[in-house]
Amino acid sequence: MQSHANATVERVDWLSVTFLLGAVLLCYYLLPLLSLVFSQSPGAIVRQLTDPNVVSAATTSLTASIASVTIATLFGLPLAYWIARTDGWAKTVVTAVVVLPLVLPPIVSGMVLLTVVGPNTFLGELAAANGFQFTRSVAGVVLAQTFVSSPFVVVTAKAAFESVDRSLEYASQSLGKSRLTTFRRVTLPLAWPGILAGITLAFARAIGEFGATIMLAYYPRTMPVQIWHSFTTLGLENAFPVAVILVGIAVTTLVVLNVLGTNPLE
């Protein structure tokens, strides 16, 4: 009995130790964020909120992020499912390709995109001939954001699909259900929390995207570009309130995503 009690105490102690160590990191996340928010007077933030440049940047950021995450999900989920249900070398190669944008420095991502959709490329000229442009446009923002954020959807959804036991899919199909029905009613609901986590990460990455975006589309400005612009033209003090607004948009969106995060197809 004595030893049993000791064992319990020891276990609780270890948990406390892990929490204390982790708490250092938590403080490191939260302190700067809170310090940023509380260092700014509400008046300064409201002033920025009514600044047409900031409003326009916020609109561009939100619109482009929603568009890029939608694209990432539409194309990323099928790819993630394919990777999760494929074996052999093809799986390894494709996974490596998907991870590539994650390891590239964002500014390099922007540069490689420019070599494909830039003004002097085949695709760029083709678009221009049709009165459209991939750079200096919302399309450019979406392209940059999709490139850097979509791997989060694919990688996280792949893990989520892999965690769904294949025998459940076999069971469903042997009960006479098609692959699509099986996916919709069995695989997707079970993988959904993981997929939602991927979408959330991708959104966070997209709305904060800066490096690839300035290469592809300095205009129309997104919030990070607006922050950069305020910082370089008006100084750090003037960039802070815009940063607070971006943090607000990001956090709100993540909360909304998670609150509404029940499987729409279930």
Partner: peptide, 20 residues
Amino acid sequence: RSLQERRTGLVFQDGALFPH
């Protein structure tokens, strides 16, 4: 033929019940 067309009922070792 695909699984869904075979009409062969399959019972797995752990039941493979849909957990949700």
